[in-house]
Amino acid sequence: MELSELQHRLIKRLRDGLPIGKRPYANIANDLGTTEETVIETLEQLIAHKVINRFGMIIRHRALGYQANAMCVFDIGDDAASDIGKAMATLPYVTLCYRRERVAGVWPYNLYCMIHGRDRLTVRAQIRHLIARLELHDAPHKVLFSKQCFTQRAGKYGAPAISASLSASGPASTQTIPFPIKSGKYHEQA
């Protein structure tokens, strides 16, 4: 779907989040120089056309207790990757699942899933279950827990093609959320 100029501007405006007040869509309409009704219609179009995958409260999962965050990567034959990915995605503890391009000579892994949990013991048990369930014992894989989060913010979609941060501009807002478990304690690579 080709996005309209207004859709681009709405996407850009939404990066700052919906204002928390009685008439948030009217506030956005005011910023964009249009009507509340148009803002709502434009947003509903983006949702209906699945440009927006999810519209709602975007939480800081680490602050809410999801502090064991594992990216599991597998090297799966190209012909089997799609079927295994679809099966992986049905496991209840898998939060995201993707097939990605390998990096020749550096990174042979092509199938990724994220498991977010409260503690590493639970997440490790879930990874063992995943490997057993999908019979991936022979597939080369790695588990990369996150140690600290330097940034979590909205994607810069809907922006003009010229990047503001490529020219001289003020600093981007950056929030560092330290991970409570100190580094060095866990060395986990399957």
């Binding site: 140690k147 330097f150 940034t151 979590q152 994607g155 979609y157 922006a159 981007a172």
Partner: peptide, 29 residues
Amino acid sequence: SHFTEINHNYEREDKLNLWFVVTTADQAS
């Protein structure tokens, strides 16, 4: 993280230790 095109940026336990997602309006950017 100073680049506003970065929307997630994590340290992970691996030789490749800094992982981030870059989002822009188009492929050229």
